[in-house]
Design a binder for these strands. Structure first.
Length: 413
RNA sequence: GGAGAGGUACCCGAGAGGUCAAAGGGAGCAGACUGUAAAUCUGCCGGCUCAGCCUUCGGAGGUUCGAAUCCUCCCCUCUCCA
């Protein structure tokens, strides 16, 4: 245990988690003893998406090393909206919606963290922020914040171009208050977060020093983009979610498989727990062999998020769909039910593609098929209005495919 | 409160009465090439009952044979002044 404790910071460094630290030696010293740390998550949706995976992994590393992570759901701060790095005002959400989302996040976090016996803690800042009294808050805390300094914060830069609303300007104070609050009540001395949070986190460090005369710390993570500069976890379908209802384990697996060669080693280090020597070995693979590294990445990442069984299924499905002999098709291909009475009279292919959600509109489906990207049971569909009916059934199902990678199996009901 | 600038498709951004479903770029999609990668090339990229029709240029009205383009009112954003 002792050894583990000493090494967490090194693990972070080695695996590429660290962008900035308040005080490296200070943090190292701190982490020699079991420490409570926290990361805030915004409950703007009922599921995490991939963007939150870096912080989640970091909390998991902390816990494995014997520290105590707090996952703070920003039920209160979301009522205000964080302007950091954003280009526009975020829509302000309703209280009930936020509470509902927080519930969903709680469940997902428990796949990565062990909340038994207080080994990890879940908190919601709505519990204290919504009770604040404006005048008292200004007198007791507001006076410690220098507007001049806040104005120079990097996180507001983007917003000065278009205008920063006062409500958002307050976000920093609230996040600072959170850190102080968690320090007071949980002896939390370390906050982590994406590098866009640097300014907000430092505000909390400063506030606590002024109020309590205590040094607390912060580590920020690099903001992950793919090699092509796109934000992680975004695809044409929108975000990649950790919720299997929103992003199937198969699609999740495929997301990782399809990453750029250049990203694989970095991602293995961040998004899996594989030992670093193995990560390096996989990262050193060249040419087509990198596919193996991608497979490991996809498998490990899927296993962490959806469990071993789902990861196996996704891997098998991928082999069968993309491997040389695509004979038996796996269970993991997303399935869609369709009433027998609907298929019986025959449905034009483009309508079927739209109905099954493979295309957003019928026009898009027409286009797809006209361009040669529509397949049924692995045969290219020749005309967009080709009639599909029960004769196209193979083993009680029909396999549709859009382009090279989007598969869908119709199950007749 | 005053003065000015501006709101165009996922994003950026041209258009200034008909030839505008709206240039160009980015993102995205498909095809070819490949390794389910990258790069490249080609095509697509509002909706539909698709060689035609319908609905779009902040919102509501109006002028006109005809409006993203002109007029009126409203909403929103930015800049400068108070």
């Amino acid at each position: 245990m002792r050894n583990n404790l000493e090494s967490v910071f090194d693990i972070f460094k080695e695996r590429g988690f660290v962008e900035q630290v308040t005080d490296e030696t200070g943090v190292r010293d701190l982490l020699e003893e079991p420490t409570t740390c926290y990361i805030g998550f915004d409950p703007t949706a009922s599921s995490f998406h991939l963007g939150s995976l870096v912080p989640i992994m970091s909390l998991a590393h902390m816990q494995r090393a014997g520290h105590r992570p707090i996952a703070l759901v920003g039920g209160g701060t979301t009522l205000v909206g964080d302007p950091s790095g954003k280009t526009e005002l975020r829509p302000i959400m309703k209280r009930e919606e936020i509470d509902k989302n927080a519930q969903g996040l709680r469940e997902q976090l428990s796949r990565f963290l062990d909340f038994e016996n207080g080994k990890a803690i879940m908190a919601n800042n709505a519990d204290w922020l919504t009770k604040l009294n404006y005048i008292e808050f200004l007198r007791d805390f507001g006076r410690f914040f220098s507007v001049n300094r806040m104005l120079s914060a990097e996180s507001y830069k983007e917003r000065f171009k278009t205008g920063l609303n006062f409500i958002e300007f307050n976000y920093m104070l609230l996040q600072a208050y959170d850190f102080w609050h968690l320090f007071k009540h949980y002896d939390c001395r370390l906050q982590m977060g994406g590098n866009d949070q640097w300014g907000n986190i430092l505000a909390g460090v400063d506030l606590t020093r002024r109020l309590e005369g205590e040094a607390i710390h912060c580590i920020t993570f690099p903001l992950f983009t793919t090699s092509s500069g796109i934000k992680m976890g975004k695809t044409h379908k929108g975000s990649v979610w950790l919720d299997s209802e929103k992003t199937s384990p198969f699609d999740y697996y495929q997301y990782w498989i399809n990453q750029d060669d250049k990203d694989i080693e970095r991602f293995l280090a961040i998004f899996t727990f594989l030992p670093m020597n193995e990560v390096k070995k996989l990262g050193a693979l060249q040419g087509a062999d990198i596919r193996h590294a991608k497979e490991v990445l996809a498998y490990e990442a899927t296993k962490l998020c959806h469990g071993k069984a789902e990861a196996e299924k996704a891997k098998l499905a991928a082999h069968q769909l993309f491997g040389t002999d695509a004979e038996e098709l796996s269970e993991s291909v997303p399935k869609h039910p369709l009433g027998a009475d609907e298929l019986e009279p025959g449905v034009p292919a483009y309508i079927l593609f739209e109905k099954m959600g493979l295309c957003k509109s019928r026009g898009e489906a027409r286009r797809l098929i006209k361009q040669g990207g529509g397949y049924i049971n692995d045969h290219r569909i020749e005309t967009f209005d080709q009639i599909i009916d029960t004769k196209d059934m193979m083993n009680d199902s029909i396999l549709l495919r859009g382009g090279k990678k989007r598969y869908l199996r119709i199950i007749l009901q």
